[in-house]
Simulated assay, not measured.
Amino acid sequence: MRIALYNLTTTTKIGGVESFVWDLARELVKRGHAVDILGGVGTRRETTGARVFTFPFISRRFWQALPPLRRAYAEAKLLERLTMAIAALPTLVRGNYQIIHLQKPYDLLPALLARRLSGAKVILGCHGEDFYRGDRWLARHVDAAVSCSRFNAQTIAGRYGFTPEVVFNGIDTSLFRPQPPDPTRRTRWGLPTDRPLLLFVGRLQPWKGVETAIRALSYIPHTHLIIAGDGEDRERLATIATELGLHERVTFLGSVPRQQLPDLYAAVDILVATSYASETFGIGPVEAQACGLPVVASRFGGFPEVVADGHTGLLVPPRDPPALAEAINTLLRDPDRRAAMAAAAPAWAAQFAWPAVVDRIEAVYRAVVGETVRAR
């Protein structure tokens, strides 16, 4: 099957959706599909076996600098995507694709135009709430939709009137798996060796709720918080830690390459996931659990689908530092329970392994092109 994975930021930034596209491309190529990745001009490249095409675009920052669009975030992103579409449309039309798989509704217009001109089927991938005026009408014309979680599928159903097939996001369990013990691991990372370690992994944006984790430290004695990630909120978070007198108990590692994350997961005691908005899945908690790390997460968005409350971790109310601290203290005081969660976590996370995810995605592809799903 000839498949186009179309998403501007795949080749320009690092994030959950972008990693999903690269990983999906790799897994589809393994199964014999011819896959092209179409993205914006950028420097990100990964070895997948797929062909990569990049196209110029006018950044959303340009559009947001215009007074009428200064607060129009969705419209600025839409214009950014449409400027790439002008250059990408000939490739979409002439690529002889059977499937054009989008990751954002901002790309509906060029994909549907390509379908009209080439006969390709359009799959809308749903990862968030990227809605804008006119998207309801366009979405009605896709051939199918897939979603990263039941939470997100319900959101899409409320907006568009149809429910996507839930396929989840995938993880590479050959990479994310329990690591052998290594007494030098914390020293190599430059981390404290004499106390429990908490870990946050993700972009540093306000809605990720890292402030909640920092404030929770006030209620968790003799414990250190490791923050792996970077973003616009880093300076503010560092200031909060200093104002609370907790700066010596918080370490900012900056961005950590994905290949190094399993070793980092093995160096700590608990992963904290504290989002309170825009969190439709939760790839960090899934990767951590695949590595045998218990998770304490906010009961929000897709987190209740990826963390088995009481079995592989605990769920707490979002934006509630005392509640987060109480759950963490509960696990730190009970090493046997924490060990049981760690032991159960990899088997739970296996449902998100790429083979299972691609099985579900392939079934959708084959249904829309009228092919029979082959038994595997």
Score class of each variant (00 low, 15 high):
1 M>I: 11
6 Y>L: 12
14 I>T: 13
19 S>D: 14
20 F>L: 08
21 V>C: 05
24 L>N: 00
25 A>N: 06
30 K>W: 02
30 K>H: 05
34 A>S: 06
35 V>F: 13
38 L>P: 04
39 G>A: 02
39 G>Y: 00
47 T>F: 15
48 T>E: 07
48 T>A: 06
51 R>E: 09
53 F>S: 06
55 F>A: 02
60 R>G: 09
66 L>H: 09
72 A>H: 10
74 A>K: 15
75 E>R: 14
83 T>H: 11
94 R>G: 13
99 I>W: 03
102 L>M: 02
103 Q>G: 02
104 K>W: 11
104 K>H: 15
106 Y>V: 11
108 L>D: 07
110 P>E: 01
119 G>S: 00
121 K>N: 08
121 K>M: 04
126 C>T: 09
128 G>S: 15
133 R>M: 14
138 L>R: 02
139 A>V: 11
140 R>V: 02
141 H>W: 08
142 V>H: 01
149 S>K: 05
151 F>Q: 12
152 N>S: 12
154 Q>K: 13
156 I>K: 09
159 R>E: 08
160 Y>E: 06
162 F>N: 07
163 T>A: 12
167 V>H: 08
167 V>P: 03
168 F>K: 05
171 I>K: 01
176 F>R: 09
182 D>V: 04
182 D>P: 03
186 R>H: 02
198 L>C: 05
200 F>R: 02
200 F>P: 01
207 W>V: 09
207 W>Y: 13
212 T>C: 13
212 T>F: 15
215 R>N: 12
219 Y>C: 13
219 Y>D: 13
219 Y>R: 09
220 I>V: 14
222 H>K: 15
225 L>M: 01
227 I>K: 09
229 G>Q: 05
237 L>Q: 01
239 T>P: 00
243 E>D: 15
247 H>C: 13
247 H>K: 15
250 V>F: 00
250 V>H: 00
262 P>V: 08
263 D>H: 10
264 L>T: 01
275 S>M: 06
276 Y>V: 14
279 E>P: 03
280 T>E: 10
280 T>A: 10
282 G>S: 04
285 P>D: 10
292 G>K: 01
293 L>C: 05
293 L>H: 06
295 V>P: 12
295 V>G: 09
298 S>I: 14
302 G>M: 12
303 F>S: 14
309 D>Y: 07
311 H>T: 14
313 G>A: 14
314 L>A: 08
316 V>W: 12
318 P>Q: 13
326 E>S: 15
330 T>W: 10
331 L>T: 03
332 L>F: 07
332 L>D: 03
339 A>I: 01
345 A>E: 06
349 A>R: 03
351 Q>S: 12
354 W>Q: 00
354 W>T: 00
363 A>L: 15
367 A>M: 11
368 V>G: 00
370 G>F: 02
374 R>D: 11
376 R>E: 07
